[in-house]
Design a protein around this nucleic acid. Structure first.
Lengths: 119, 119
DNA sequence: TCTACGTTTCAACAGAAGTTGATATGTAGG
DNA sequence: CCTACATATCAACTTCTGTTGAAACGTAGA
């Protein structure tokens, strides 16, 4: 992920409604949520949400697919992962005091099964 | 770190000049850089940079101290660490495909000495 | 105290971002 | 084919953000 992409991603997440959308979609899992359901979840008008979804999509943080009348949005795990990597690589240049606490917090989470911990 | 702080931090990093400032300060290390040196480094007019520095400071991503005529800015490692943690915890809710690649990339970096890896 | 230097603040402007309501697209069922 | 539903697009407006130049502040040395 280059600086340009990271900028777009950070700018996308630096907006209340969009941050909530990403959080809702990550929580929802790979199945995602329909645009209408999302609109209710984050309490934003449909047309307005559409604007923000396009923004997030351009930033590579979410993806969409059509299912009948609905459009289902889901988190782009690869994009989110790239952003985390960018932030950590830019943060950890000789400064473990930034990244080690973060990794430690992650280890306390249930999602580090360890297989890919060592590159 | 709550949502409000995270929003401020993401918004702060979603701006070209500010992202460059943070990168420069992280690279510079704890000693930091004088405002004038930073202005040259990121190629932004002094008064304009001052505006962005205030923004980053409010977001908790940098700190400042006076040294004679100069004001020295440095990266706020704790703030950056909190942001990484926020991003990972919000990303990793049952989805290791986001965080494991990031942790793996970090392990390939020279900054994970391992002491704090296990909470 | 006077001057020079580095940094910050202020008001003004230009442009971008977010919201709204109306309208258009695309899809499924009668 | 016509209607209803879900979502997207558009133009207009408002608000926020970033930039600029002028001026003020704080510090150090003569």
């Amino acid at each position: 992920m280059d600086e340009r992409q990271a900028l777009a991603a950070f700018a996308a997440l630096g907006q209340e409604h969009r941050l909530r959308v990403v959080r809702a979609l990550v929580t929802a899992g790979p199945d995602g949520l329909a645009a209408g359901v999302l609109a209710e979840a984050v309490n934003v008008a449909g047309n307005n949400l559409s604007f923000h979804l396009k923004e997030l999509s351009h930033a590579g943080l979410i993806t969409s697919r059509r299912d009948g009348k609905s459009v289902i949005y889901s988190a782009a795990y690869a994009g989110l992962s790239d952003l985390v990597q960018f932030l950590m690589r830019d943060c950890c240049q000789g400064h473990p005091e930034v990244c080690n606490p973060a990794v430690a917090a992650l280890a306390a989470c249930d999602c580090t099964t360890g297989e890919t911990l060592h590159a």
